[in-house]
């Protein structure tokens, strides 16, 4: 049997969105039996990078728990969609950077975890050095 694999794709191949725009995509698991999956979490979030400690906030979160939900076959593509917020916009500053991404985590009963992440751009803020000083 092949190794478990988690695939995540956004409908918008450019991965650039404006505030208030709809972000949509899909994900699916391969090489795994449905009964092996404990839960799957889908998040749309931003986090900071750079000099400072990490800040993070989740804009959209969904936990699919096969134990609680109806029978879910995560080998079939499953849709995700959310309307993006007005802020914070993606930013590539000198010591503060804000990254947006869609993240899917699959948790297995035997304890292992599989994750897939697709970064995307919210807004079009240029790098600070591009601004006139």
């Amino acid at each position: 049997m092949m190794d478990p694999r988690l695939s995540l794709m956004l409908d918008e191949p450019q991965r650039t969105f404006r505030p208030g725009e709809l972000l949509a995509g899909q994900f699916f698991l391969e090489g795994v039996r449905p009964e092996e999956i404990r839960a799957v979490e889908v998040s749309v979030l931003w986090h900071t990078e750079g000099k400072g400690d990490e800040d993070m906030a989740v804009h959209f979160f969904e936990r699919i728990d096969p134990d609680l939900d109806d029978v879910v076959d995560l080998r079939q593509p499953r849709r995700l969609s959310t309307v993006l917020p007005n802020s914070p916009l993606s930013y590539h500053g000198q010591i503060v950077k804000i990254r947006w991404c869609v993240r899917v985590r699959a948790f297995f009963w035997h304890g292992k975890e599989l994750a897939a992440e697709v970064p995307f751009q919210l807004g079009a803020v240029p790098r600070p050095q591009e601004a006139p000083v």
Binding site: T48, D53, D55, P88, G93, P126, P128
Partner: peptide
């Protein structure tokens, strides 16, 4: 197109 004001716990 400049960055807006941003305030989080560790970054601003």
């Amino acid at each position: 197109g400049a960055m807006h004001s941003f305030l989080a716990i560790y970054n601003e």
